[in-house]
Amino acid sequence: MPTTVQRLRPQLAQIVRFALVGGVNTGTFYVGYRLLLHTGMPYFIAYTLAFIISMVGSFFMNTYFTYRTRPTWRKFLFFPLTNLTNYVVTSVGTLVLVNGLGLDKRYAPLLAAVAAIPFTYLLSKRILLRGHTDPATPAEGAGPPATVAGATASAAAPSAPSAPSSPSAPSAAKTRASTQP
């Protein structure tokens, strides 16, 4: 029987990867935001454009690195819905911090983003791993990467050994073997 640490290890690793992606994504957003501000663009338009650019980058970093799944058009189209919560929380936070509290417009988005982190993690996980309760354990008796309500199954959780060409298949098989009783 696996210990608590063994059961939690895949989730903790996923959270660490999410945090790393978040750091890179925040840096990308902030550099883009500052560059757009430097052009004389109004701060909220600069904020919105930088947000959209970083959201596309976030999609690809989270699919490939955080959740180790394949990007699909369906996931790509739904991913912005999960980021809508992030956008609302950070937008309201930025507006309140700049207009309500007088915080410098250069730093307000960074502070507002902190409140959005838990929401973004949970919602992106739900969209990118749709149909999977445990990304380290595939569904019993499933065949090659399946379609679950139109979303492709995770490459981190290949459902059959028939996909050896997948770069993450050996590590997923190793994870399955180490987590099974």
Rank of each mutant, 00 (worst) to 15 (best):
T3Q: 01
T3Y: 01
Q6L: 09
Q6W: 02
L8S: 14
R9C: 00
P10G: 05
Q11D: 07
A13I: 14
I15K: 03
I15L: 12
V16F: 10
R17H: 05
F18T: 05
A19S: 13
A19L: 14
G23P: 01
V24W: 13
G27Y: 04
G27L: 12
T28M: 08
T28W: 06
Y33S: 00
Y33R: 00
Y33M: 00
R34T: 09
L35C: 10
T39C: 04
G40A: 09
M41D: 05
M41T: 14
P42F: 04
Y43L: 05
F44I: 04
A46T: 07
A46I: 06
Y47F: 15
A50W: 12
F51R: 03
I52L: 12
I52P: 10
I53H: 09
G57M: 10
G57V: 05
S58C: 01
M61V: 03
T69V: 04
T69C: 06
P71D: 00
P71I: 01
T72L: 01
K75V: 02
F76P: 09
F79M: 03
N86I: 07
V88G: 07
S91T: 15
T94L: 07
L97E: 15
N99R: 14
L103D: 07
D104S: 08
R106N: 08
A108S: 15
P109L: 02
L111P: 13
V114S: 01
I117S: 06
P118G: 03
Y121M: 09
L123Y: 08
L128R: 04
R130T: 12
G131A: 08
H132S: 08
T133A: 13
T133I: 12
T133D: 14
D134K: 12
P135T: 03
A136T: 00
A142T: 12
A142Y: 01
G143F: 06
G143S: 14
G143L: 12
G143A: 13
P144Y: 03
G150W: 11
A151E: 13
T152Q: 13
T152E: 14
S154K: 07
A156W: 15
A156D: 11
P158Q: 09
S159N: 10
P161N: 11
P161H: 07
A163P: 05
P164R: 02
P167S: 07
A172R: 07
K174V: 09
K174Q: 15
R176T: 13
A177S: 11
T179N: 15
P181N: 10
